[in-house]
């Protein structure tokens, strides 16, 4: 038993041509926790996971997984981890159970042990009812869960989940979230990457926010949310005309930062230390006093785009449409 954290990285650098996929990346993940790497496309999340899983060589820096050096102890690292990629690595024609039995046997388990392990995992990931159906009949969420089960065959100390809910419908996302909680309950440490702040918030014990291959913020979801300006009050105005005046009125009433999107006639207010409800009331009072009737006022969590705006004072590096809708609500 090692007391060292199951995942530790210091100053990782990885370059592809002129692009710095990782540019001095640091990470420490505590045993038995869920850690989220949060960032937009191209932030270096997948590269970070691939280097820790020994699929990609690092140019500089050092990393240890389950106590093994990723640069020199490939075999030991690979034996200690499970990796679930962005697309399901499953045999579509075989049944769910047959997939797990086959992978378990290829991992070296005997026929009986492979069957037992497959049944345990099907049970643990709530797939027992679908065990004897072809994978081609599975929903996206079921495939992802079977994929996670396949990653758990060897009882890895660390499970990497690369964007586990990308492309899933809300039901599938909820199923996968539930599956991740079950995995952690089994004692596995989980590192997951995500573009969705709410996903990191719901699942992770700690979140590392990445941008351009670097860590730009790190902490528990609560710490990060308060540091990132807390919840947001969204005000939608009937027209862009007079929106500047409305912004001035609102800004005078609250302590947090106020941003105006003229094109959409929207004002977004950072609730800050005073808290969401207090900010919401202050905003409504200020608008009322100024004689402005908005079409909509709501309190919501910050989107990834707003987090990045706050941290870097610029929108996410991807195109705004990908993140502006939050993609995840």
């Amino acid at each position: 038993m090692t007391l060292a954290p199951p995942l530790e990285a210091r100053g990782l650098r990885k370059r592809y041509g002129d692009t710095h996929a990782l540019d001095g990346f640091d990470l420490t993940v505590a045993a038995g926790s869920v850690h989220a790497l949060l960032g937009p496309n191209g932030a270096g999340k997948s590269t970070a996971v691939h280097t820790l899983a020994t699929l990609t060589r690092i140019d500089e820096g050092e990393a240890r997984v389950a106590g093994f050096d990723v640069a020199t102890q490939h075999a030991q690292v690979r034996a200690a981890i499970g990796l679930v990629g962005q697309s399901a690595a499953l045999d579509e024609i075989l049944h769910g159970r047959e997939n797990l039995v086959m992978f378990a046997r290829l991992h070296g388990l005997g026929t009986f042990a492979a069957r037992t392990r497959a049944d345990e995992l099907l049970e643990a990931l709530d797939l027992a009812d679908a065990a004897d159906r072809k994978v081609s009949t599975y929903s996206g969420g079921m495939r992802r869960r079977l994929d996670i089960a396949a990653g758990l065959i060897t009882r890895p100390a660390v499970l990497f989940l690369d964007e586990p809910t990308t492309g899933l419908d809300p039901r599938g996302r909820a199923d996968v979230w539930d599956a991740v909680r079950r995995v952690v309950a089994l004692g596995t440490t989980v590192l997951l990457t995500t573009q969705y702040l709410d996903e990191a918030d719901r699942l992770a014990d700690r979140i590392t926010v990445m941008d351009a291959g670097r860590v730009i913020a790190e902490g528990t979801p609560a710490e990060l949310k308060s540091r990132l300006g807390g919840d947001r009050v969204l005000v939608v105005l009937p027209t862009a005309t007079g929106s500047a005046a409305a912004k001035v009125a609102v800004a005078a009433a609250v302590s947090g930062e106020v941003r105006l999107d003229e094109e959409r006639a929207e004002i977004v207010v950072e609730a800050g230390a005073e808290g969401g409800t207090a900010a919401l009331l202050a905003v409504v009072r200020a608008l009322d006093a100024a004689g402005i009737t908005p079409t909509q006022v709501q309190l919501r969590e910050p989107t990834l785009d707003e987090v990045f705006l706050h941290l870097t004072d610029r929108p996410t590096t991807t195109d705004r449409t990908a993140t502006a809708d939050g993609g995840h609500r």
């Binding site: 699929l55 075999a75 690979r78 034996a79 990796l83 990629g85 697309s87 399901a88 690595a89 499953l90 045999d91 579509e92 992978f103 290829l106 991992h107 070296g108 396949a150």
Partner: peptide, 16 residues
């Protein structure tokens, strides 16, 4: 197909 990705990540012989 995706399953080839898994086969390649498993600790098995490349002729298997």
């Amino acid at each position: 197909k995706g399953v080839t990705h898994r086969f390649r990540s498993l600790p098995i012989s490349s002729v298997a």
